[in-house]
């Protein structure tokens, strides 16, 4: 039920980069018409952590991450990325972040290679670095053979991977990934996990949202459970799950399992 309070050292250092939190979300709230999508979410993503954000459909994960990355203006609250206020100094904050949003289109009339290059050039990187990193990313994500194919002709999984490559090109200090493994094949997913694990090991921080509890339990060191726009639990994986598996703990927190007989007519025998 609690989220770790922001450490005073960060509070006292506006704009400082020395703070321990890669991403600090404080009291975010957003209302769409009648519906309160996010209702006071506070999270602290420590530097060098692999942070999982789990919750049922419609819990407000995407809305929270959109607000945290400067894509959606919050009604209340503050977001700091390495101490930089995302909504106060957006251009500076966005330099530190790599963002993979969920449910948005891509400039899909570009080829995969062009799209990643475009993302790099938009970041103001020089041509040589962009070309080198684009090649590396396409090879690492197993897209080299389709580099010249238009993104509109990619499969769902390939589209996800090319969007991830666009988010990685500028070597950000924080990665915000919304459902990065959705419809990605198991081999590619394992490759991506390796890339992310190496990235975290080198000091980068990742926050991912996912539905797959098993994946989060294996991959992440921190987790936050979010439902109906509020944080139900947050901390290290072991703190949150206790003795149970993350999935059991999640169901316990969120509720909603149907234990009655139900759909008896569906049984064929």
């Amino acid at each position: 039920m609690s989220s770790p309070a922001p450490s005073p050292s960060v509070e006292n250092e506006p704009g400082g980069r020395a703070g321990s939190a890669a991403l600090s979300i404080r009291g975010l709230a957003k209302r769409f018409g009648e519906k309160i999508a996010v209702d006071g979410v506070s999270l602290e993503v420590p530097q060098g952590s692999f942070y999982g954000l789990v919750g049922p459909n419609g819990a407000g994960k995407t809305t929270t991450l959109s607000m945290a990355t400067g894509l959606l203006r919050p009604d209340f609250g503050q977001v700091l990325v390495h101490g930089v206020d995302v909504w106060g100094r957006p251009l500076e904050a966005k330099k530190l972040m790599g963002i993979l949003p969920d449910g948005v289109r891509l400039f899909d009339r570009l080829t995969g290679e062009q799209l990643v290059t475009y993302a790099g050039l938009l970041r103001g990187m020089d041509r040589e670095t962009v070309a080198e990193r684009t090649g590396d990313l396409l090879r690492a994500l197993d897209l080299a053979n389709d580099a010249g194919t238009l993104v509109v002709d990619y499969s769902a999984g390939m589209t996800k991977k090319i969007a991830l490559a666009s988010a990685l090109i500028h070597a950000p200090r924080l990665l915000v990934l919304d459902e990065p493994f959705e419809s990605v094949d198991p081999v590619s997913a394992a490759n991506i996990r390796d890339i992310l694990a190496g990235y975290v090991e080198s000091g980068g921080s990742v926050i991912v949202s996912s539905h797959v509890m098993d994946l989060v339990q294996r991959m992440c060191d921190h987790v936050a459970v979010i439902a109906a726009g509020t944080v139900l639990a947050a901390g290290t994986i072991d703190e949150v799950r206790g003795d149970a598996t993350l999935e059991d703990r999640f169901v316990e927190l969120v509720g909603g399992r149907n234990t009655s007989e139900g759909l008896s007519w569906l049984r064929t025998s």
């Binding site: 400067g70 251009l91 963002i99 949003p101 948005v104 289109r105 891509l106 400039f107 993302a119």
Partner: peptide
Amino acid sequence: DNTAFSLHLSTGV
């Protein structure tokens, strides 16, 4: 652009 525009936003153009 539709939501592909989010790339301009997230890259801080």
